[in-house]
Amino acid sequence: MKLPHYHMIAWLLLAIACLMSLLFGAGSIGPDSALGLLMGNDDPEARFVIMELRLPRLVVGLVTGLALGVAGALLQTLTRNPLAEPGLLGVSAGSAFAVTLAILLGATTASLTTLISQLGALAGCALVIAATRMQGVGQDPVRLVLAGATLTGLLLSLSSLVMLIDQRAADEIRFWVTGSVAGRSWDQLLATLPSMILAGLIIVAVVRPLASLALGEKVAMGLGHHPGLIRLAVILAVALLVGGATALAGPLAFVGLVVPFVARGFGGADIRKTLWLCLPLGPALIVSADTVSRLLVAPSEMPLGVITAIIGAPVLMIIIRSRRIPTL
């Protein structure tokens, strides 16, 4: 397959982001000894920092960025709304609330948390779809986001309420709820992997019919597709991806907005081209945002969710302020 040059640039950006993430921050070794280890010097301290602190963090960032970027692109095509982002529409918040409840009730295993998180995301998706069916909301991209913001606010307040009830749960929840890829174990990562692969398979099967849905429901049916089944499959994939990402890194807003927005800027509106570009761009955004979060206020760290919001909010304003919100 012949890929346009911006694909090369996107993958190059990702490679640089990964390297930076291994070289800087999180752990008391400098870039020189980190680089030394990568070159083959066996320094036990450097080995510990890289293998136990930075590498898991990098991989969590890769998975989270991939999941959120792809989920955003899918949700935007499905609702034909460029502002439809899991974090803004309450999908992530649904997932976060479900996890908060689960922690309060004593759920500890990573696979259980992941499943609960995905069920919460599924409920969030169902609410989004219900909202798009409401008179006036579905047709107006900005109103859908307002509805989502209301839902997000409500769910996050409820999560805070839960934290007031139980001090032990609160400590566990607090850092997670602002979004972070730090301190995740390989177990937590492995727990999300099966569902991420399942989501990937669903996407491969559904991407062509989904693209035709962008031409309208009747056109899709005329081409032999089943719009109801396509929607169901896409919602399931989004729930698996967002739920998995949220279980890992907490509710991260704006990633699913920024990544597809940039991808569409290069590749055009076709969902297949957008998805191909989201593959490197999503992880590149999260991994570099995470590296920045370690360096800005070193030796402490900024929550990753704050960095993504700082990047994402202006993009949201650019899209809304553009004279006409492009239809998808």
Binding site: L215, G216, V219, G222, G268, P326, T327, L328
Partner: peptide, 16 residues
């Protein structure tokens, strides 16, 4: 769909 093609009224396509 292999025997019958339909062109509905008021079609819209993604920008670009």
């Amino acid at each position: 769909a292999q025997k019958l093609a339909l062109l509905p009224q008021e079609n819209s396509a993604p920008e670009g």
